[in-house]
């Protein structure tokens, strides 16, 4: 489904060159769900950027469904790849209404001069919002800027499901939310990727999530994958084991310590 071959990415920082990714090889089958942990600066977000196409690798190839997409622009990869980031503001258009945002997401290919919102699609939208259980079904005509972070992120997840991506990239997408909303959005995402069998890569700082979700766990450090646990290995792992591994790698990360303490 998705294959990364010898991906290296160098950034220029003043006179120095920083290697954000130092050679990543990764292959995902359809329906795989990988969780990725690692300290800040480990290259997790750069990895997702390269898959999504917002950043081009310095060396290496990105292959989606047996097709080399290394230089394909991000908007064209969007037909297979959906992405949700940490920032609740990133996934929605704030000045437009909930209904308009949903309409944008539900139609990806061949946009035409047909009316974007009809009575029928509105009924569907009410259903979609009802299933969120956030009382948003009455607010279809409110601009999204009036929504809270949790509501916006839930809407972003719903929009991602409407687009039916085959690959989903989740970049700490619950990190900016309060615990209640984080749980809700997390469950919502989980339900969606499992129901549709979406190939998923989830970056997280929450090691319990990293262990509980998915069928494979990667630990990254300094642009490399330092540990790659299969489904069986993952089952026997506990949070404390991961912390040990982190300290073996001399990874110091306040955020990680906070999450586990």
């Amino acid at each position: 489904m998705l294959k990364l071959e010898h991906i290296r990415k160098a950034f220029r920082s003043g006179r120095d060159i920083v290697l954000a990714l130092a050679g990543i090889d990764l292959a995902l089958d359809r329906g795989d769900f990988i969780t990725v942990i690692g300290s800040n600066g480990a290259g997790k977000t750069t990895l997702l950027n390269i898959i999504a196409g917002t950043v081009l690798p310095t060396v290496g190839r990105v292959i989606v469904k047996d097709r080399d997409v290394t230089t394909l622009p991000a908007y064209r990869r969007a037909q297979w790849i959906g992405r949700i980031t940490q920032d609740p503001l990133a996934g929605t258009a704030p000045m437009m209404t909930i209904a308009e945002n949903l309409a944008l997401a539900s139609k990806r290919a061949h946009r035409s001069l047909r009316l974007a919102i009809t009575r029928r699609t509105r009924r569907e939208m009410v259903e979609q919002m009802l299933s969120l259980g956030m009382d948003l079904e009455h607010r279809l005509d409110d601009p999204v800027s009036l929504l809270s972070g949790g509501e916006r992120q839930a809407l972003t997840v719903t929009m991602a499901t409407l687009a039916r991506p085959e690959i989903m990239l989740l970049d700490e997408h619950t990190a900016a939310l309060d615990p209640a909303n984080a749980t809700k959005v997390s469950l919502l995402t989980q339900e969606f990727v499992e129901r549709m069998g979406v190939t998923t890569i989830m970056v997280t700082h929450n090691m319990e999530h990293a262990l509980a979700l998915g069928n494979r766990l990667l630990m990254m450090n300094k642009g490399e994958v330092v540990y790659d646990f299969s489904e069986e290995e993952k089952k026997s792992l506990r949070v404390i084991d991961l912390v040990d591994l982190f300290s073996k790698q001399h990874i110091v990360d306040d955020e990680l310590l906070l999450e586990t303490s």
């Binding site: 999504a52 917002t54 622009p73 991000a74 908007y75 064209r76 969007a78 037909q79 959906g82 992405r83 503001l89 990133a90 996934g91 929605t92 258009a93 704030p94 000045m95 437009m96 308009e100 945002n101 309409a103 944008l104 997401a105 139609k107 990806r108 290919a109 946009r111 035409s112 001069l113 047909r114 009316l115 974007a116 919102i117 687009a163």
Partner: peptide, 27 residues
């Protein structure tokens, strides 16, 4: 026009371009 599918995309382009790219649109 601004209520059509294309019109909606045009409005969103000025509102949140990154999101529109993620929706598969050549902004």
């Amino acid at each position: 026009f601004f209520k059509t599918e294309v019109g909606l995309v045009l409005r969103a382009t000025g509102d949140n371009e990154r999101m529109v790219i993620a929706q598969g649109v050549n902004t």
